[in-house]
Design a protein around this nucleic acid. Structure first.
Lengths: 208, 208
DNA sequence: TTAATTCTTGATCACTTGGTCAAGAGCGGT
DNA sequence: ACCGCTCTTGACCAAGTGATCAAGAATTAA
């Protein structure tokens, strides 16, 4: 039996292989989507045989939801950090910066979510309507408070959050288009960060 | 022989069926992506048998590129309308409004492109690097001209265009998320249009 | 060492799917 | 009515895919 629970904890090799699988799955799912990805691709990617992979995750869908959940938490961290006690413009600037860096440093996670939501969010629909909505509503209320205090130009907080999501994730999700149009210069993301922060800050600055 | 060309023009029934197919293909491809969609689905959707559908388009990919090309032109029309001779703020406001209405009235086309680009734009990569890049560069130059004249706050024109694309298409592409978070109120898109135009206009207004 | 447990895989299955083909039905011009 | 062309489809095929299973290899605990 296990040490203290009926469900024994993972062996070293188990934890290691699951990590390998999740990493490979992120790459494959983000590149081809759920239906476009094959279990074989993921298995080959991490050097395991297909039946061996299915020993750890019994169904393809199990791998998919596992990698989704595995990255969901990190993805929302920047929004959680938005602090009601901070200076409004600084808080929002910080949020935009964090989001665009996430987009630059982990574009695969961004594309994974983008694909999932684009196709109806069947796997994480409940999460969106529950925890995500709660978090967004909470932060929208903070922003609304700043507006009421006259510390921020009046814009709908929910749509402001959508605008920030859209603009920052655009560089990861639609990289193929951005690269094709710009030729992908090395300072692309720096320029994006500067332009977006400038644009939002000027738009949000309270009219004196 | 045909009236004037070696390639005889389509019969009435041919034109009619191709239109049926393209319409059904847009719905299916936009919902499931290229690999997720099946020829059978498209055939059933428009009341044709699978072999009959493949009589008009010999390969699945042919249907896909046909529907992409069929909607590409309309999709870029708003940007083409951006007029150097117009008043800067009014022109950009008009562009944002046109884009968000396109997003509201034809979300399936938006999702079709989103999916295509998300997965690397293999079918339209050449178009992005050619005609699209040319169009964007041309319009970016116009915006840069306005900035140089001091009629617009200084922001990078390319990134401004990306920001407008991202924010407007967000409502179509990530509808599942937007609906989950907002509960999808009837005035959602009106509010979005108002918020986005306000945000961009205030951000672009030249500092007096 | 030994025995239980965990891990690994070749072979295989059931099913889906893109695509073919030959034969027939329908249509248009004469 | 006749003939050539377009259109339509049932049957079929080959490839790919998710998933299973039994049997063996490796690991771990005693």
């Amino acid at each position: 039996m296990g040490e203290a629970t009926a469900i024994t904890r993972k062996t070293r090799i188990q934890a290691q292989n699951e990590e390998l699988i999740l990493k490979a799955a992120l790459e494959v799912f983000s590149a081809y989507g759920f239906r476009g990805a094959t279990v074989d691709q993921i298995a080959t990617r991490c050097g395991l045989s297909k039946p061996n992979l299915l020993y750890y995750f019994r169904r393809k869908e199990d791998i998919y939801v596992a990698v989704l959940e595995h990255t969901l938490h990190d993805w929302l961290e920047p929004l959680r950090s938005l602090d009601a006690a901070g200076e409004p413009i600084a808080e929002i600037t910080c949020y935009i910066r964090a989001k665009i860096r996430l987009s630059r440093d982990n574009p695969k996670a961004s594309r994974l979510f983008a694909n999932e939501i684009l196709h109806g969010a069947t796997a994480i629909g409940a999460y969106l309507k529950g925890p995500l909505k709660d978090l967004v509503d909470e932060k929208a209320a903070i922003i609304q408070g700043w507006i009421t205090q006259g510390r921020l130009n009046a814009v709908d907080p929910h749509h402001l959050i959508f605008a920030i999501w859209a603009t920052t994730q655009h560089y990861a999700d639609f990289d193929a288009q951005v690269s094709a149009v710009t030729g992908n210069p090395p300072d692309l993301m720096d320029k994006a960060e500067e332009t977006l922060t400038r644009l939002f800050v000027e738009g949000l600055q309270p009219r004196r």
